[in-house]
Design a binder for these strands. Structure first.
Length: 874
DNA sequence: CTATGTAAACAAC
DNA sequence: GTTGTTTACATAG
């Protein structure tokens, strides 16, 4: 260590003073536990060295503070201090060796070992470093705490309130406890347990000491020392002192040159522990830490705290090379010190437009906060490479993580960047630092950065199968924002876009444009290739969320209008498909698929066999579908046919656009009918394959302005239906059923049939409808809002337009426990109320119309749904 | 488990 | 290619 230049408190240089001031100011801005960046041990110690001791003209704080300084610039003596002689030797000889900060790199080896890169690694037995002779300790030494009092540091240095952790006094009780195992054996006496936690679990360990001082590893000793201190923290010197005073082996060596070896080992082990384990932390950048630093020699800049939430007995095993006799012990995370995520923001990249746009600061390039809080040397770091997330680092180095162009870095929550402690350096070579972290920071995934780097750098062939990896970009994590553009979800943004529209409606491409215009993240991804993803997400969200509804645009080929569903509650609304799983709960997917396959097969077979029962109900698709249900219900042997209906119905309930959805029915909707055990006649009926996919579920989407049954989405030309025009219902009438139609909330809820539901044959009920007897469908209904067609029109008309009497089917369907009836009556009551109430027409403008048709009503959806279905199938 | 984001298949236009 | 629906899957909370 002769390379170390004057370590004895040299006068502070102006630059140093300046540096300290800035850092003190920095540290004052953030509490120690909310530091914006967890210092890497090497970084920190190196930095501290620079600050406290301008070592030489060639290694000044100025030089070290430059953005270009790298780890390679760290003087060897510093590295020696940081790593121990061996680590320094390695670090000074090759960059890759830094990645070997694992246990092997720190295992004590003879000081005179000359590192020769040309030599092949020589296997050696473990633990051949320590003397074979293992003196027996006098347990009496431990009978009472050896340390009665820890020498206090100069109070002038620490200030009145800055008490250094000390051992002694009452605190030694803890030490006593820890120094004895459950059997009362002296910890450092002859028979030593494997661990303080379980001294008798292994008889072998109980009789064999692993080290000259006993079975405790350095880590355990250090932990014991730290935990024995009142404040659960020690400086390195205090660790030394504790060792000397509590462990006879070290005591014997503590006051002579012979201590250098084990102290160096302490350093080595400490660094190793700190780097590899989660057990020790150093409060980076705390003022107290600075004071500690001032109070000790340059070699004592580590302040090691045993994580308070970690049990001393749950010491990390760090590495097999240190302690491979112990089985792995599960250990919980000890994120006592919250990991503060570093964020870099380049002010020059702040958006200049849309000053009030809340989305603009969200851009990853423009991460808004903490920039001013970081000391400049840290800002100069290539932060991307400092990510402790293996995947992030790998991707960053490889050219940028997905969707994370920002030059920010942070750590994965599961990675122990917060546990990166100790030595410091200034700026460093990105990959070197990354490798350092890779070697020293265990990630939650169990993969180190180095490993990740290797993988990302072509270490092996990529699997052919594309595997999604949607790790959040580091900048996103840094901001703790769920998305790279900010906190708001797609649906939130879409809602804003729609709300911002003058008419409250936007076409899809307009929504796209709004995204692009108002959110920088999307604007910067406006290329066709890049935009495909988020546009897809927009479409997905539009379709999926009940929050939005689609209004058919009248023009042929025109895209629909998308509007906010006024019925939707503010904020979150359930996804349309959300209920699906709830309704299928009784049926496993596999079973359902099997059922579908079987049903489909049967249908195909029947289709091949030709029409057998075509004369029964085949004249009307409506009648067909109704009959399907009817037939199903009559068949007790069938496996819960209503369940099947419910299942797929609820799925199609997702298709909740406003009327006019004449197309783009998911193919799965067709398949859904395969769930049904169709009666034999079904497959024989020509109309069966043409059963409108949405007839059951999408009655609200029917269009009536395009001709007979145009809205039924019947792919095959529908059978001629009664074409006698009937006046469209009034808006009151619409209102009576508007609820289920506009938003069709009923479709968002599963229809839960009564278990004892036995539909009546309903001969009269279907009689009139089998002929396509929905006269109403032949009539266009003027819509005050272009494209808006009330889905409730059909039902309303069926119910009300022809007469004030209840439809015959409703009368016949009136059963106490029948869900169908429940809602039909409900709709009728609402209708009657609306009629009697003389509501004013609100259809004079779009918004009023929307409010009108979309106003919530108390009818529970499934009832209304059933009602609509009932009407439409008539 | 839920909410969300993302990718993708599929179909109609 | 666009629009729309739906499913599947990954991830975070």
């Amino acid at each position: 260590m002769a390379l170390m230049p004057s370590l004895s408190s040299p006068p502070l240089s102006p630059s140093f003073t300046s540096s300290i001031s800035s850092e003190q100011a920095y540290s004052q801005q953030l509490p120690p536990t909310h530091l914006p960046f967890q210092f890497h041990p090497l970084l920190q110690q190196h930095q501290q060295l620079h600050q406290l001791q301008p070592l030489s003209a060639t290694f000044t704080p100025e030089s070290s503070g430059s953005s270009n300084s790298s780890l390679s610039e760290i003087p060897e003596d510093v590295m020696m201090e940081m790593l121990g002689d061996h680590g320094a030797a390695e670090a000074s000889t090759s960059t890759s060796s830094v990645s070997r900060f694992g246990a092997d790199a720190f295992m004590p080896t003879p000081d005179d070992v000359v590192m020769n890169d040309d030599l092949e690694p020589i296997p050696r037995d473990r633990c051949n470093t320590w003397p074979l002779q293992r003196p027996q300790f006098d347990s009496s030494l431990i009978s009472k705490p050896t340390i009665e009092k820890i020498p206090e540091e100069d109070p002038d240095l620490f200030g009145s309130n800055e008490q250094c952790g000390r051992l002694g006094g009452t605190s030694t009780n803890g030490s006593i406890a820890m120094l004895n195992n459950s059997n009362g054996d002296a910890l450092f006496g002859g028979e030593m347990p494997d661990s303080p936690e379980d001294g008798s679990s292994n008889s072998k360990k109980a009789t064999t000491r692993r080290n000259a001082w006993g079975n405790m590893s350095y880590a355990e000793l250090i932990s014991t020392a730290i935990n024995a201190s009142p404040e659960k923290r020690l400086t390195l010197a205090q660790v030394y002192e504790w060792m000397v005073q509590n462990v006879p082996y070290f005591r014997d060596k503590g006051d002579s040159n012979s201590s250098a070896g084990w102290k160096k080992s302490r350093i080595t082990v400490l660094l190793l522990i700190i780097s590899v384990s989660l057990e020790f932390i150093v409060p980076a950048r705390s003022r107290r830490l600075d004071l500690y630093f001032k109070s000790f020699s340059s070699r004592s800049r580590l302040i090691i705290l045993h994580r308070p939430t970690c049990e001393a007995s749950r010491l990390p095993r760090m590495n097999d090379s240190l302690d491979d006799d112990f089985p792995p012990e599960p250990r919980g995370r000890c994120y006592t010190w919250p990991m503060q995520q570093f964020v870099f923001q380049d002010p020059s990249t702040l958006p200049q437009h849309h000053p009030h746009n809340p989305y603009h600061p969200m851009h990853p390039h423009q991460l808004p906060h903490m920039h001013h809080t970081l000391p400049q040397p840290l800002l100069n770091l290539n932060m991307t490479t400092l990510t402790s997330s293996g995947s992030s680092v790998a991707s960053s180095i490889g050219g940028g993580a997905q969707g994370s162009p920002g030059a920010a870095a942070t750590a994965q929550p599961g990675c122990s960047s917060s546990n990166v402690i100790a030595a410091a350096t200034a700026s460093s070579q990105p990959q070197t630092v990354g490798q350092m972290l890779a070697a020293s920071v265990p990630c939650s995934s169990g993969m180190t950065l180095g490993m990740s780097l290797n993988l990302s750098q072509g270490g092996g062939p990529m699997p052919a199968k594309k595997k999604r990896c949607r790790k959040k970009p580091t900048d996103q994590l840094a901001q703790k924002k769920p998305n790279p553009w900010g906190e708001e979800s797609y649906s939130d943004i879409i809602a804003k876009a729609l709300e911002s529209a003058p008419d409250g409606r936007l076409k899809l491409n307009e929504i796209y444009q709004w995204f692009s215009d108002n959110i920088l993240y999307f604007r910067e991804r406006s290329s066709q290739e890049e935009a495909a993803g988020w546009k897809n997400s927009i479409r997905h969200n539009l379709s999926l969320h009940s929050r939005f509804m689609r209004i058919q645009n009248e023009g042929a080929g025109k895209s629909s209008w998308w509007v906010i569903n006024p019925e939707a509650k503010p904020g979150r609304n359930p996804r349309r498909t959300r209920e699906r799983s709830n309704t299928i709960e009784a049926t496993t997917k596999a079973a359902l698929d099997k059922s579908r396959r079987g049903a489909k097969k049967r249908i195909e077979k029947r289709a091949l066999m030709g029409s057998v029962h075509s004369g029964l109900n085949g004249n009307s698709t409506a009648g067909s579908i109704t009959s399907i249900q009817h037939d199903m219900y009559d068949d007790d042997s069938m496996q819960s046919p209503f369940d099947s209906m419910t299942a797929f119905r609820s799925r199609t309930q997702s298709t909740m656009s406003v009327p006019g959805n004449t197309s783009r029915v998911s193919p799965t909707n067709c398949e859904l009918y395969d769930d049904l055990e169709f009666p034999s006649w079904v497959g024989d009926t020509p109309a069966v394959p043409n059963i409108p996919n949405d007839l059951v579920d999408r009655t609200d989407q029917m269009r009536i302005d395009n001709g007979p049954l145009a809205g039924l989405q019947i792919k095959q030309e529908p059978k001629p239906i009664k074409t006698e025009p009937i006046a469209p219902p009034s808006y009151h009438e619409l209102n009576s059923v508007r609820g289920p139609c506009v938003q069709n909330p009923l479709l968002r809820n599963p229809i839960v049939p009564s278990t004892n539901f036995k539909p009546m044959p309903l001969p009269g009920a279907f009689g009139g409808y089998q002929n396509g007897a929905n006269p109403w469908l032949t009539t266009s209904v003027p819509s005050p809002l272009p494209g808006i067609q009330s889905c409730g029109i059909v039902a309303a008309q069926n119910t009300l337009a022809s007469s004030s009497a209840l439809p015959i089917d409703l009368e016949n369907l009136t059963l106490p426990d029948q869900p169908l009836m429940d809602m039909d009556v409900d709709a009728l009551i609402r209708h009657e109320l609306s009629q009697a109430g003389g509501q004013k027409s609100k259809a004079t403008n779009e918004k009023s119309f929307r409010n009108f048709i979309c106003a919530p009503h108390p009818a529970h959806s499934k009832s209304t749904n059933q009602s609509v279905k009932s009407f439409n199938t008539q």
